[in-house]
Amino acid sequence: MHMAAFLLKRIAGLLGVLLGMSVLIFGIVHILPGNVAYAILGEFASPAAIATLEAKLGLNDPLPVQYWRWLSAMLQGDFGMSLVMSRPAAPLIAEALGRSALLAGFSFALIAAGGIALGLYAATHHGRTSDKVLTLAQFVLIAVPEFFWAILAVLFFASWMNLLPATGYAPMSSGVASWAAHLVLPVMVLSFGLVAHVSRLTRSSMLEVLDSRYVLAARARGLPEGRVLWRHALPNALLPAITVLAIDAGLLIGGIVVVETVFAYPGLGRLLVFAIERHDLPLLQVGMMVVTAVYAVANLIAELLYAMLNPRIRVAGATA
């Protein structure tokens, strides 16, 4: 019962945030004086032509009316047209989103697995050289911007070693090897800093747990060290890591925008930057909405996961 109520409340909150975000995005884009018609017709258009087009597109209606038209169309699955490419925005976004999801999925798996494994290793080897190297490495890794990692990776793996393609994307149909080769560098760059972030946190929360009384009690009962680590310490140490992974999902989305631009990878991030550069406002608006929705859902999943794994919340739910 408790869980269902919790879920309903969170989903209502999510819808509220999305509605608020649609107002914010629409508001920011439309506060500026009518530049949509201007953007379509170019800077040499006559005032008469602009006025005709504005009337046709309904740009002279009051903003709330325009907002409602945009929102209700979007709710019915009509995502509008890209101005610059003169194509419906929905398939453009869906295609780009799929490719971004590929990038994000691989990176996220690498971040979760690599970060937690490294953090555990550092915690169980506390105070030794490897732990110190890892601490320093994390400190440096966090302080290097993604786009600079990307430059270094391209320089090293593409220009000097000639191992991997520097930019672009190859569809699966052109061969699995080529497809994978184009993914390696972007995934690597996206994961670098965040692996450091997650492992640093896992390390400190694991150290804290290993210091706790119940771990001491488990050891005092003579349980084998492996069982103490895996069954007693790890589940508790992972809770903060899950919260951080959720925060990192946001950083990952930000990173994707930058990394896709550097590697000329045709995903949603690059599509957004393209829309900004070319003033393709309709495309920009729906693109932003889609990213916000993805981010909000990712956060919700993390929160549910946390609630399910946290014994205190779980027990509270069962007894109520």
Binding site: L24, G250, L272, A296
Partner: peptide, 12 residues
């Protein structure tokens, strides 16, 4: 609710 880079992008 908006990832940081996107909020920056939106304003700019």
């Amino acid at each position: 609710a908006l990832p940081p880079v996107l909020l920056g992008l939106l304003v700019l």
